[in-house]
């Protein structure tokens, strides 16, 4: 017991120091990576709440500083432009997540429900609230508009079946950040054979998302 506690706190310390080691510039680039990955992956990726929170903190800090400088300051206008650029990336990232939640809400909620204890959360608390509300509203709407006028035996509604799942077999473009060996490529047709490829660092590829999905969440490849 004490062992596991010690381990836990050790892990926490490590996490903390990692976050502290991250410079604001690295923080911004990790936000940009998350943005591109989210934009191009067919399914909803893990929520990057820490990154989002840290960036927001930086932005509010900078904005409160900016309010104190007088108008017409050359430096302030440059800072303001940078803040606007970062805000754009941040909102585009959050928006693309919301779009995916709206599109796949039953599946997202299902995955969140079946997620194991301690596994990283797919949704931030706000996104989770949004997904639940969206789910409830869609259901109520469908019932009010059509279902309650149907014969009783047709009134049941299974949103999990009614809403299409994300298509993990879509192709994606990706750039390799850490060398990977022996990635199995499944054949397209029956008369082709499966084969393996090595992904060299810095190379770019086109392949099915399903093959490399774990590499996207581990950060070994970047979707482009």
């Amino acid at each position: 017991m004490s062992d596991s506690l010690a381990n836990d706190s050790g892990d926490l310390d490590q996490d903390d120091s990692q976050e502290e080691l991250m410079t604001p510039a690295e923080l911004i680039s990790s936000l940009e990576e998350a943005w591109l990955n989210e934009k191009f992956s067919p399914e909803l990726l893990e929520s990057k709440s820490e990154v989002v929170e840290c960036v927001l903190e930086q932005l509010t800090h900078m904005e409160s500083n900016l309010q104190r400088v007088k108008k017409g300051d050359a430096k302030a206008s440059i800072h303001r432009m940078e803040v606007d650029r970062i805000r754009f990336v941040l909102s585009s990232y959050l928006r693309s997540r919301l779009q995916k939640i709206e599109k796949f809400f039953p599946h997202v909620l299902e995955r969140e429900k079946s997620r194991g204890e301690g596994a990283p959360s797919l949704l931030s608390p706000e996104e989770f609230a949004f997904a639940k509300e969206y789910h409830a509203n869609t259901e109520t709407y469908l019932k009010a508009v059509a279902l309650k006028r149907m014969p009783p035996n047709l009134q049941a509604l299974d949103l999990l079946k009614a809403v299409p799942e994300p298509c993990l077999d879509s192709f994606v473009f990706l750039r390799v950040k850490e060398k990977q060996e022996n990635i199995l490529i499944e054949p397209e047709t029956d008369d082709q054979r499966e084969y393996v490829v090595d992904l060299e660092e810095g190379s770019q590829h086109l392949m099915r998302y399903r093959t490399i999905a774990p590499l996207v969440s581990s950060g070994a490849v970047q979707l482009i």
Binding site: F173, I185, E186, P187, E188, T189, Q192, V197, S203, Q204, H205, L206, M207, R208
Partner: peptide
């Protein structure tokens, strides 16, 4: 890529 029904392509330098 499409006519040969490939499942993987390398796109360096793009």
């Amino acid at each position: 890529f499409i006519s040969q029904q490939e499942a993987h392509a390398k796109l360096d330098n793009l």
